[in-house]
Design a protein around this nucleic acid. Sequence first.
DNA 1: GACGATGTTCGATAGTTGTCGAACAAGGGT
DNA 2: ACCCTTGTTCGACAACTATCGAACATCGTC
Lengths: 101, 101
Amino acid sequence: MEPHEPDLTAVPVTTVLAALADDVRLQIVRALAEGGESACGSFDFGVSKATRSHHLKVLREAGLTRTRAAGTSRLVRLRRDEVDKLYPGLLDAVLSQRPPA
Amino acid sequence: MEPHEPDLTAVPVTTVLAALADDVRLQIVRALAEGGESACGSFDFGVSKATRSHHLKVLREAGLTRTRAAGTSRLVRLRRDEVDKLYPGLLDAVLSQRPPA
DNA sequence: GACGATGTTCGATAGTTGTCGAACAAGGGT
DNA sequence: ACCCTTGTTCGACAACTATCGAACATCGTC
């Protein structure tokens, strides 16, 4: 089943915001923004792999990330250009708040 | 009971984003951004007044609005300056998506 | 081909949230 | 004083969501 990666313009703002309105997903987005393309398994934020997979799906279906297969892994990357173009300042604003020290 | 209007810096980003991730609340924010300070009753978006009151509470407790009593009404206004200062571009980005024509 | 690693999907469950009507509170006007 | 208007609060209920373990799928390797 090919991953469902919608055109960002087709996704309601509320869906994009809801996707970002979760701590685990925000940590994933932060990691992607700083570390670039990463394997799913690199996001170990204290949740099971089932939950992690779920969060990555939410981000993907919100149009925020792209996923591609790479051997036995899957590489995820942030669709930064597209997001910044459609919602200038959004990611910067969201990522500006530093994680709890 | 005095309205609970927290310092925006004390509110987690996820809470701010969650507050904006709802259609009704987004319509309220849009109305406030365009029309300035308005009475609660002016936000008739097809929900009951109980629901409307709930949404205004969510926005207020996310640090996005302020409310003051004015006779029998209550006037709500967007804390635009503070939001723009802490999350530059966020409101612009969110408000940029036009409501369904 | 069997095995191990990496992810996804399924079913279940607990918690959160949007919604409503009804009851309540407070102001203003007649 | 009474009423009407404007909002808030209180249950209640349905829908959604975050979470997990277990089962499944897929790829590379031995």
